[in-house]
């Protein structure tokens, strides 16, 4: 009969250890891929602001001038979208949840002076362009080797801020310096590596157009 159905479980539980863990006195065990909190390798960061632009809960702030990356861990929902979007792969999710605190605080990471100095060029005033979207390219800029360019348009399609335009018919490659956030995604995706990151300031802050030679595409024999 069904009367003693639960009795067995009850008796067993009398002699077993508690199922719960006395956290935080005993440490919790997390599996390898646990999404606890975001960590940044700030040496690799290029302050491209893609993480801050895409954060669903607006927990991230990036200051390009000061070279800082700020996170409000109490706003962060640990979704991992910034990690997925980061072009330099300097963000990662690591196990371990946010610890409790008395008040909501922000955590700020500053890029090392060397990486800032590499990018910045001394004493040249920033020119604000007229057709601007607010982002001003201040230090390094993308330059192109017009002889190598195939005009494939991969750079244009991968640009997160629509700063590039490639026209195969007119044989032009143009860049809107005021829109370019110097993230380097175009360089990473270029099949011929015809673009480089120039550590100097750009010549202008408007749209620069270059005539490309449309190098012939090599075919397999």
């Amino acid at each position: 009969m069904a009367i003693m159905n639960f009795g067995k479980t009850m008796l067993k539980n009398l002699f077993l250890k508690p199922v719960t863990v006395n956290y935080p006195a005993e440490p919790a065990v997390y599996p390898e891929g646990s999404r606890g909190h975001v960590e940044i390798d700030v040496d690799k960061c290029i302050s491209c602001t893609i993480c801050a632009m895409n954060c669903p809960s607006d927990a991230l702030k990036v200051d390009r001038q000061a070279g800082t990356w700020t996170i409000n861990r109490f706003d962060c929902i640990a979704c991992g979208y910034c990690v997925e979007k980061c072009p330099k792969k300097c963000l990662k999710m690591v196990p371990g949840y946010q610890e409790p605190m008395g008040e909501k605080t922000e955590e700020t990471f500053r890029r090392p002076e060397e990486s800032m100095a590499k990018a910045a060029k001394p004493a040249k005033p920033t020119v604000t362009a007229a057709p601007s979207t607010g982002i001003v390219s201040t230090h390094n800029h993308v330059s192109i080797d017009v002889k190598k360019c195939l005009g494939c348009g991969k750079c244009m399609r991968n640009c997160p801020n629509d700063a590039l335009a490639v026209d195969r018919k007119a044989k032009t490659w143009s860049i809107n310096r005021s829109k370019c956030i110097t993230c380097g995604l175009c360089i990473d995706n270029c099949p011929t590596k015809c673009m480089t990151m120039d550590p100097n300031d750009p010549d202008s802050n408007g749209i620069e157009t270059y005539e490309i030679e449309l190098a012939p595409i090599k075919k397999k024999d």
Binding site: P31, S34, R35, A78, C79, Y81, M93
Partner: peptide
């Protein structure tokens, strides 16, 4: 948590 890294919100 083993497969996606979180207990309830999978993402």
């Amino acid at each position: 948590e083993l497969t996606v890294g979180a207990r309830l919100i999978f993402s």
